[in-house]
Simulated assay, not measured.
Amino acid sequence: MEALQELLGAGEGSLWAMFVVAFLAATVLPIGSEPLLVALVRLDPGRLAAIVAVATIGNTLGGMTSYAIGRGAARMAPAVEGSRAARWLRRFGAPALLLAWAPVGGDLLCVLAGFMRLSWWQSALWMLLGKLARYWVLAQGVALL
Rank of each mutant, 00 (worst) to 15 (best):
Y67W: 08
V20T: 08
R90N: 12
G72W: 15
F19R: 12
R90P: 13
E34Y: 04
F92D: 05
T60Q: 07
M64F: 07
A49E: 09
F19I: 13
A17G: 06
V38F: 01
S14F: 05
R90L: 13
V80M: 14
E81A: 14
G13N: 13
A17W: 06
R71G: 08
L37T: 00
A86H: 12
F92I: 08
S66A: 09
V54E: 02
R47V: 05
G63R: 00
E81V: 13
V28H: 03
I57R: 11
G82K: 15
T56E: 02
A94V: 03
R84K: 15
W16T: 11
V38M: 03
G63S: 05
M76A: 13
V41G: 04
M18P: 01
A85H: 11
N59W: 04
V38R: 01
A50Q: 14
V41W: 00
W101R: 01
V28D: 00
A74G: 10
A50N: 10
L98M: 07
V80Y: 14
L99V: 06
R42I: 04
V80S: 12
L24P: 00
G13F: 13
R42S: 01
G62Q: 01
A55W: 03
A79G: 13
L15G: 10
V41E: 02
A85T: 12
A68N: 02
A74T: 08
P30G: 00
E34V: 09
Y67S: 06
A39R: 01
T65H: 00
A77F: 15
W88K: 10
W88N: 09
L24G: 04
G82E: 15
P30F: 04
R75E: 14
S83H: 15
W88L: 12
S33W: 03
A50H: 14
V38G: 00
I31P: 09
G63T: 00
G32T: 14
P35Y: 06
W16A: 10
D44G: 02
R47N: 04
G58F: 04
E34M: 08
G32F: 11
S66K: 00
L89I: 07
A94I: 04
V20W: 10
L98I: 09
L24H: 01
A100H: 03
A55V: 03
R42K: 08
G32Y: 09
A85P: 10
V54Q: 04
A39L: 06
L24N: 02
G13S: 12
L40K: 00
S66Q: 06
V28K: 03
P35N: 03
L15I: 14
M76S: 11
V28C: 07
A77Q: 14
P35T: 07
L36D: 04
A77L: 15
W101P: 01
P30E: 01
E81M: 12
R71Y: 08
S14D: 05
V80K: 14
S14R: 09
R75L: 15
L97M: 08
S14Y: 02
L40H: 02
P45F: 02
W101N: 02
V54D: 05
M76H: 15
R75D: 12
L37V: 01
A50F: 11
E81N: 14
A74C: 09
A96N: 08
R87F: 13
G13D: 12
